[in-house]
Design a protein around this nucleic acid. Sequence first.
DNA 1: CTTACGGCCTGGGTGC
DNA 2: TGCACCCAGGCCGTAA
Length: 271
Amino acid sequence: MRLVLPGRSIVEVRLSAKTDFIDDPASLERELPGTRVKSVERYGKFLVLDLERVAGSDGGKIALLIHLGMTGQIVVGSAQAPIPAHTHAFLTLDDGRELRYTDIRRFGRIRILLDGERETVLGPLGADPLEVCEEKFREIITSRGARIKALLMDQRVFRGIGNIYTDESLFRARIHPKRLGTKLSEAEVRRLFRAVQGVLNEAIRLKGSSVSDYVDAEGQRGEFQIKHRVYQREGKKCFRCGGVIRRAIVAGRSSFFCPKCQAAPRARRKS
DNA sequence: CTTACGGCCTGGGTGC
DNA sequence: TGCACCCAGGCCGTAA
């Protein structure tokens, strides 16, 4: 995306009939034509396309915000290419090609960000786990009473960590998902810091975890799923200790962990 | 304020 | 052929 989109203008916008995942479909059709892509950035789990208005210039900033959810895919290609099922947005570019958004489950999200909205939407997001230093990471983790699993997945605490990478990071750091952030030792926080960055960097390098048939913008499958140590390995042997991987619901999400490597916290008093 | 939890959205995969 | 069930991220309502 970063290689093909900057400099391209959006000529036309077409949407499918199922636009319930788009915040304001009419605003896309109204605002996008006649804009040029300035930059493409990742912000947590969001993709932010910074746009400049080519013709009508009121100086106001505008951006296109895209969240792929679980099954969202964006591809830039020939407008004549066959249209995959569940393709819901078509942005015709000035070179004749098309940016298409395809999303089987429609758990993704698309919206326009006008001047002030950028801060409203992106402002509440927490630190980027790949940019934060260890001291800051420690400060964030140890100042919250929530379970570490909930903390890592909360986009207001850190932006961009989801369920798979939370479980893989906690396994690598040998920390049980139900542990409290405030109760982690100095050594545990350090292990977790390194685990999170290691897992994310490796996942990015391997283009993510293709659980079914996900492909990235270049049509490539991710390969990180090969590296999964606990995710969706319930009942299988732990690669580290040979114990049995278990699954439990923590923070409302399916959580996989090795009960031997990741010791459970002391039972908390009932509420 | 923070945290926890249940439920809803969607549809492919799975198991009966 | 059918059908109940599971699950994912975000979000909302509710409760403590």
